[in-house]
Write a protein that binds this DNA or RNA. Structure first.
Lengths: 114, 114
DNA sequence: TCAACAGTTCCGAATTTCTGAACTACGGAA
DNA sequence: TTCCGTAGTTCAGAAATTCGGAACTGTTGA
């Protein structure tokens, strides 16, 4: 397992962010993580919206979100805790995350986890 | 040639919009159309940012933008005139287009065409 | 040392994207 | 009308991407 890559704020790319959030499944994952404030593990995220996401697919989704700079993942023992980088992204691209989550009908500061 | 499809405002999907604008080439096209206010023909759009976009690719890009609801295309004689649907999109998803164009470093109301 | 667990990587199948070539549609000239 | 040039679309095969089951890695606890 190679170490996780997280782009620096100055390296954030709008195209990567838009691409990551152009998949409703990833939006649900991101909204859940942003809503929890922290500690979204894969197990907790694999059953959003009724469908069970295969764990290899979930791992790919997390990678896309991570490499877009939307979340940060930290290993804590056996599990991975993910938290959002909303504030960092917002400092670089003001209003972007809020507008996107709003368009999807999700609040940036809370999540109803479907 | 089948007639052009344009989604109604109430059928706009955030995922389609984000996907369409997750490609910098499409963003350049869209910004150009939005900046011109109107009348972006394919010929006028095929050489943004230095690269010549093959016309079949350009046609696909236009289709993606059109079906996402970002532009409207109208046949005028032999050519197609495209204009942006910014206002309609904005009425449905307030601030979304502005935040995205701003993230890409483009103004929603003008274009410097690279 | 071993087993269970959380998540990643591998790899083949399915889907999507890209683009040159062929095609359609329209307008103008003869 | 017929023919030609222009604007853009559709087709089709190659290349790239995505999906997801199986195998794997790394960690903890017994």
């Amino acid at each position: 397992m190679r170490p996780l890559f997280h782009p620096a704020v100055e390296d954030l790319k709008p195209e990567a962010i838009l691409y990551a959030l152009s998949d409703p499944e990833r939006v649900a994952i991101f909204a859940q993580i942003a809503g929890l404030g922290s500690s979204g593990t894969c197990a907790a995220l694999s059953n959003l919206g009724g469908r069970v996401i295969p764990k290899s697919s979930l791992s790919q989704h997390m990678k896309v979100l991570r490499e877009a700079g939307l979340i940060r993942g930290e290993r804590h023992g056996v599990e991975m805790r993910n938290h959002s980088r909303c504030q960092e992204v917002d400092s670089r691209f003001p209003g972007l995350i809020a507008a996107i989550l709003n368009a999807y009908g999700r609040s940036p500061d809370q999540s109803d986890a479907d």
